[in-house]
């Protein structure tokens, strides 16, 4: 068994633990935190899988997955705080444009 397979296994176990927290988590923030951790682990898992299968193109997928993960968490948080994704908040340029 190669060391990559062992790392992939450890990452899968971590994802399972985070999934358990997402299922249990008393507040919505616990679930979001678990989702963020799952995203980071999935990114690492994609990179390791690329090496395991000898296909380094998987790294591009890992990069895109990481970007989507961050944007996803921020978007869900914004949705919970304002109930709307399009609200620009208190940005001076946006307020100037709205006037």
């Amino acid at each position: 068994m190669s060391v990559f397979a062992a790392v992939a296994l450890a990452l899968l176990v971590t994802i399972t633990l985070a999934l358990a927290r997402a299922a249990m988590g008393p507040t919505v923030f616990d679930r979001l935190q678990a989702a963020n951790t799952i995203g980071t682990c999935a990114m690492m898992l994609l990179a390791v899988l690329g090496f395991l299968g000898g296909r380094p193109e998987f790294l591009d997928l890992a990069l895109v997955y990481g970007l989507l993960n961050v944007i996803g968490v921020i978007a869900v948080l914004k949705f919970f705080r304002r109930g709307d994704l399009g609200d620009p908040g208190h940005h001076p340029a946006a307020e100037k444009a709205a006037r």
């Binding site: 062992a6 790392v7 450890a10 971590t14 399972t16 633990l17 951790t37």
Partner: peptide, 24 residues
């Protein structure tokens, strides 16, 4: 790689064991 997997697992265990959101 092995040390990295160990710390990932530690974080996963911590997510289950810690008592409240901020400590998690």
């Amino acid at each position: 790689l092995v040390a990295g997997s160990f710390f990932c697992l530690t974080g996963g265990i911590g997510l289950i064991r810690m008592p409240d959101f901020y400590t998690r």
